[in-house]
Amino acid sequence: MDSSRLDLLQGTLDLLILRALRSGAMHGWAISERIQQISQDVLRVNQGSLYPALHRLEHRGWIKAEWGVSELGRRARFYSLTASGRKQLEIEAVNWSKLTDAIARVLRMA
């Protein structure tokens, strides 16, 4: 395994999915591609765990799924943010930056 790539921490995948969907509806493969692309290939989504996460978020009502037609004309399941998902994204983003700030401070001081 390439040592420059990081596996995701538990729970951060949800945040990344929500963030990725902020720019609009997309299907599962596009989500994983986008996360990898934006993080400049540093973050790698475990493709096997992407779909359970998507279903979980759907159940919580943060995202919703619809069948649509992909860019290549094939039937695909498109996910998009719901209103409560948008709210959740804000909350989690704030939490995440608090957490990283705190960790960074600890690392600096220690």
Partner: peptide
């Protein structure tokens, strides 16, 4: 069935890439 279709779509996309 829908889930199978969704996962297959992902794999096919990956293969294309």
């Amino acid at each position: 069935e829908e889930l199978q279709e969704e996962l297959q779509f992902h794999i096919d996309m990956q293969a294309r890439k």
